[in-house]
Structures are given as structure tokens and as C-alpha cells.
Design a protein around this nucleic acid. Structure first.
Lengths: 361, 361
DNA sequence: CGATAGACTGCAAACGATTGCAGAAACGCT
DNA sequence: AGCGTTTCTGCAATCGTTTGCAGTCTATCG
């Protein structure tokens, strides 16, 4: 079927071993035969069989990435980044989708090690700590985005406390005093951390924490909508909402649209994590970028490092934090200005965002 | 390291071959030893090594999916579907991202066959027909979404002519006579087909084709924006725009926002392919659903079929079409009603969208 | 009772590479 | 020339399975 090492060796009238050494470039072969073999191999179109090689060396040139889904924009860019990096290094990426389901995660993990993957980057559900720990003896593993507290695996995390702090402070600086927070479940690291950043910014600014302004739930549009309604139905509704997740943002936008609440005139909106269409949306939505791209890159770096060092060389560091950054667009507005006649929370549609409108069409 | 067939055989005091036969269930072994071996294997936690098996059998239990990117919502759901289906069958999915770049595609293809993948589902760039054709002798291949005209590979396509026809007809039925079309490059099948569907609907309705209303370009937001501007700058701008791609839709929305064009009051908008946020957007965007999920499922079906039949059993059919369907939401409006005073293409921001605003908040 | 078919089982050779070990060739040195 | 190095090459084993072939055992039948 395809050209094997044996064919090359025969064509060159040398033994298979010599051919192998010449082509893998171990330096144990003479310059002349080396070049000759390389030439012949090329002429014959020889391509080494990774399966056979893998059997002997125990490596597969396969690295797996296990994420929850692909609808999440962060996971998308991570998958793209990981794939690109690995490909450049001659690895193939096995992309697995666990759906945040412990059982599926567990199954997937075992098949992956069966396949003798050379490395694994995983967004853990947090329910398979024991298994992950056991696996990490055989395969280099790096956790991404979430930590699995039952393990001591190297983990690359977004700096959620800082990101949430940054975002909240931004809103405070714009003059907001009542800032609604829609945040993730409090039994996840990120949920807790984002809340803590928010609280810290409030405290620093000397603003009292008001628990009626804080709502936690799953990262889905429905939750966003529900929480937004609760916030807006408050006797004294917030002047700004910080949505700590992009999926939930969809729900919030829906509610503001339904109720005809103009952003940012009637309500400022700040979102955690980017989505491609946020900057095309009108108004373009300001965000705290969790640095998905950097996260993925760092995870790959760490994984490669571990794969090199072999033997699970722990160099002490267990946790890496990737800084978040604020990207200001048009969905948050200054609020402390002495309200001019037509501004404030009227239903006017003529503030900053629309001031530059052309009458074109 | 891990327990091998030899270990199992030893524990059971049989030869490796017997163990192999018992565990793979060839039926060539006595009921009793069969069950005994299965038991022992389980007790020892034996897991067959796919690499070793692959070396012998020439199969890898790996199926590759090669798409252009993951930002495209259709590709996302396809990837999810393919992954789920394959996993259920004990295959792992190799997800590759080609970026619609012929060179990358070509490279990827060769590494994939190196890895002895058992099957391939590919969204071809159309520039590597020869290679694909050659590969298809070794590996079952199914093309998805796009056809590669240089090959006779089995291909699963969206019914673009029908989808475009459906969408256009919908707009016509709503009374639109001048319908702008923003469509893909005309050197792609889908680009041409979507145009043809549009043209057919027009013809059927007895509306003359107006080429100033038709713009083609890449499926990216920028193109959408550029084309939208051209359309809106026309002396007689269209009353509806049919955007034959969701990415381009972003650009269109941006332009309508910039120019304060209310949808659907000032302009009806219909989009090809769904995106998760379209139904959360306000107004919710009407679409022609290309049936990404069905496409992926069918592609997997066909691939499995080919993998079974082995020897590239062609059963004649070369092309499968998956029907598109119209999903009406809120971005298209009836236009033939005798225009009331305040409608039309004024720059007013006070049509339906803002008329119902509550002063809430 | 012996022959023979049938049902299991084991031996050993693959699959395509890598690699330890030892032999061969080439070289420099005295 | 003889000897020790060094450098290169080939043999053969190995990785963990599968599988053709031949051998063993039992049971059945004439």
C-alpha cells in the first residue's frame, strides 16, 4: 500500500536499521549515506508510519483537548489556538467535547489514554479528580480555565478576581453606585472569584454591598433574562449591570430590548468574556476580556514543557493566572455628570452613541 | 506500565492468541474460556492498545473532520454532532482547522492519512481535488457543505438553491419587490447556488432581475458592511436585504445601526444560516436554516456506510441534499400595506421599535 | 476399538518502526 | 605491520496485537 522503511532500505541497498537511523537523524550514520537515504526516501515518497513508531516509542503525536462545548466563544478560540500551535509542532489535536458532564468526561479520559495521547489539556468538570490524578502519572496534563480541587495539577486560569474587579471599578469610575451583578454558580471557582472581585471594587470605593443587586445562576441566556428582570424590577434598580458571562448577556439584552431600555442611556451594560459579534452589536458591548487566546497559549506552553521534561517534572508552580483586560466600547456611560435637561434616565435616544449619527439613507 | 494481553493470558494460563480470540469474540474459542478470559481481563483492568491493534489491522479508530474554522456557527454544531456520533461508536474525532487555505488543507490531509485515519469528513477548499481523489483510494471520504468539482467524491450538501429560493419567495410574499442580495463568492458552489435560488424566485414572481441589487464577496462582516452600504446608497435602495451568510450579517447590522435604519420598519432583513444569538437579538432575526445538524448527521451516516462497505463501494449516489427551511422571526415585515404617514425611509427613530418604549427604569 | 471429524488451542509470523549489541571498516598511532 | 580507536553498519529483538497454520483433544461413528 504505502512506502515503508523497508522499501527505502531496499532501494538504497542498506539495512532497515541504517535507514531508520539516517532518516531520524540520530547522527550515527555517515554524512553520505544519510543524505543518500533522505534523497531516496523523498523520491519514493516515504512517510513514516506514526502507528508503528508509536508502538515502539509509546508516543502517538496526539494531544487531546477536552472542553465542555463549542458554542462557548472562549472554547472556540482556545480550540483554534491549541490546534494551530500543535499542528506547527507536528502534533494532531484530538478535540473532545464533554458537555460538562462528569460521566462523559470520565469515559473520554479513559479512551484518550488508551489511545496513548502524549498530552492533555482539559477543562475539568471537577468531579473526576481522582481519575485525573491517576492519569497524570502516565500523561502530562494541564487544566484550563477551571481548577479541579481534588488534584494538584498544573492549572492555567483566568484572573477572574482581577477581571471582575477591573470591570466593576470601571463602572464605579463612570459614576455608577448601584451596580447589578449577574454571576455564575457559587459552587464553581470562577463564580466565586468573579463575585469576590466585584465585592472588592465596591469595598475600595466605599460603596456598601447590596445583596439584592447580586444574582447567581447558570451561564445560560435564560438565567441572564431572569436575573435581569429581577434587577430591573427592584424598587431602586441598578444604573449598570455587570454580566459575568457572555451567554447570560444574551438574556439580558433580550430583556432590555423587550422593555425598551436604551443602552447605555438608560442602563450601562458590561460583560465578561468576548464574543465576535459584541463589537458589531449596536451599541458595541464593552467587555472584560478574559484572555482566552492567552490562556490557550499558556496552557500549550506548559503542556509542552511537561512533555519535554517527561517524568512529570514539577517545577513548583501549580497555578498560572492570565490577566484580564478591559475593552471599552459603547455600552457603558458616564453617569455622574450633572444631568442636563434631556439626559439621565429619560427615554431619549440622543446621547453620545447616537449623537454622531448621520441622517444618511 | 499498563496491563497487556500477555498479562491477561498469563493470569489465565492460556496463550496470547487464545486470549486475543476470546476477548475480540471471534467465536473460535470455547464458551467457558471465553467467559473466563473476559472476567480476568476485567479484573486486571485490561484495555486493548489501539496502537498495537492498529499496526496489525491498519485501522486507527480515528476519524477526522476538517473544517475551515470554529467561529462559524454551522461548523460548531457540525463538529459537535460528528464528535457525539463518533464517540458513541467508539471512534475518536480528530478535528482539524484548515482556515479555507489550500496549502493548510493539503498539509493536513497528508498528516491525516499518515495517522491512518479510518475516515474523513471534509469541507473542501476546492483546490486540492487531485489529492483528495488519490486519498479516497485509501480512506473513505465524504465531502461536506462544499463540493470539490475535481473529484467524484460523495458529497453532502445543503440545498442552497432551495433555501435561497425559499427565503426570497418569503420576502416577495411579504410584498417586497426590490430585494438586495449579499451572497458569497461566485467561484464557490454555494455562492452560485444561492444566487440561482434567488433568481429563480424572482423570475417566478415576474420580477426583473436587477444586478445592482446583487453583491458577492467573502463571508465576513466587512463584506457584509461594504455591500450593505452599496445597496443602501442606491438611488432606489432595496426594501429588503437577503444576506446569504451569517457572518456577513454582522456587517449589515452594523451599517443599519450606524445609519439608524430600523429593522424591520425601514428595512427587512433575512439571513441564511442560524446563529445562537439571532433569536435573542432584537428584533429576532428571521433566517433560512441550512440544517447544519442534519448535514452533519447525514455525512456521518454516509461515512459509516462507506467504512463498512470497505473497498469504496459506490452505490451510485454522489450527492445528497439536505433541505433548508425558513424560520420566521421578527426582522421581515409586510410591505404592501398602504404606507401610513410616518413610515417609509425617513431617518425617524420613532417607528414601531421606539414607539412602544416605556419610560421604565 | 480405531479412525475421523470437529472443536479448541498454541506456535510463530506478521504489522513497521526503533534500538542494544556486536561485527566490519577505516583511521591513526607507534 | 600491528594494534587500538573510532565510526559506521547490520542483525535481531522488541513494542502489543492479530491471524494462518498445525497440533491436541474429545466425541462420534462404523
Amino acid at each position: 500500500m504505502s512506502v515503508t522503511l523497508k522499501d527505502v532500505a531496499q532501494a538504497a541497498r542498506v539495512s532497515v536499521s541504517t535507514a531508520s537511523r539516517a532518516l531520524t537523524g540520530t547522527g550515527l550514520t555517515s554524512e553520505r549515506t544519510q543524505q543518500r537515504l533522505v534523497r531516496i526516501a523523498r523520491e519514493l515518497g516515504y512517510r513514516p508510519n506514526p502507528i508503528a513508531r508509536g508502538l515502539k516509542t509509546g508516543q502517538s503525536r496526539l494531544v487531546a483537548l477536552l472542553v465542555h462545548n463549542l458554542t462557548n466563544a472562549s472554547f472556540q478560540v482556545m480550540a483554534e489556538v491549541v490546534q494551530a500551535r500543535l499542528k506547527a509542532l507536528g502534533y494532531q489535536m484530538l478535540l473532545c467535547i464533554g458537555g460538562d458532564d462528569p460521566q462523559a468526561e470520565s469515559d473520554t479520559l479513559t479512551t484518550l489514554v488508551d489511545h496513548r495521547i502524549d498530552g492533555l489539556i482539559v477543562v475539568p468538570t471537577g468531579k473526576n479528580g481522582a481519575q485525573l490524578k491517576a492519569l497524570s502519572k502516565d500523561v502530562p496534563i494541564v487544566c484550563l480555565v477551571r481548577r479541579d480541587d481534588a488534584t494538584d495539577l498544573e492549572t492555567v486560569l483566568a484572573d477572574d478576581p482581577q477581571g471582575a474587579y477591573l470591570g466593576t471599578r470601571h463602572l464605579i469610575e463612570l459614576g455608577h453606585k448601584r451596580i447589578g451583578l449577574i454571576v455564575g454558580r457559587q459552587d464553581t471557582t470562577s463564580g466565586r472569584e468573579r463575585l469576590s472581585g466585584y465585592v472588592r471594587a465596591l469595598r475600595e470605593a466605599g460603596i456598601a454591598r447590596d445583596d439584592t443587586l447580586i444574582h447567581a445562576g447558570h451561564y445560560v441566556p435564560e438565567t441572564g433574562a431572569t436575573c435581569a428582570r429581577k434587577l430591573l424590577d427592584l424598587p431602586r434598580p441598578p444604573s449598570a449591570i455587570f454580566v459575568a458571562n457572555h451567554e447570560a448577556t444574551l438574556g439580558v439584552l433580550r430583556v432590555t430590548a423587550e422593555r425598551n431600555i436604551a443602552i447605555p442611556d438608560d442602563l450601562s451594560l458590561l460583560c465578561y468574556e468576548d464574543m465576535p459579534w459584541f463589537e458589531w452589536h449596536r451599541p458595541a458591548i464593552s467587555i472584560v476580556d478574559n484572555g482566552a487566546r492567552d490562556l490557550a497559549n499558556l496552557a500549550v506552553d506548559r503542556l509542552l514543557h511537561r512533555m519535554d521534561v517527561k517524568g512529570n517534572g514539577n517545577d513548583g508552580v501549580r497555578e498560572y493566572r492570565v490577566g484580564a483586560r478591559l475593552i471599552k466600547r459603547d455600552s457603558c456611560r458616564q453617569i455622574d455628570a450633572p444631568a442636563p435637561a434631556k439626559s439621565g434616565k429619560s427615554k431619549s435616544s440622543s446621547s453620545k452613541s447616537s449623537a454622531t449619527k448621520s441622517a444618511k439613507v
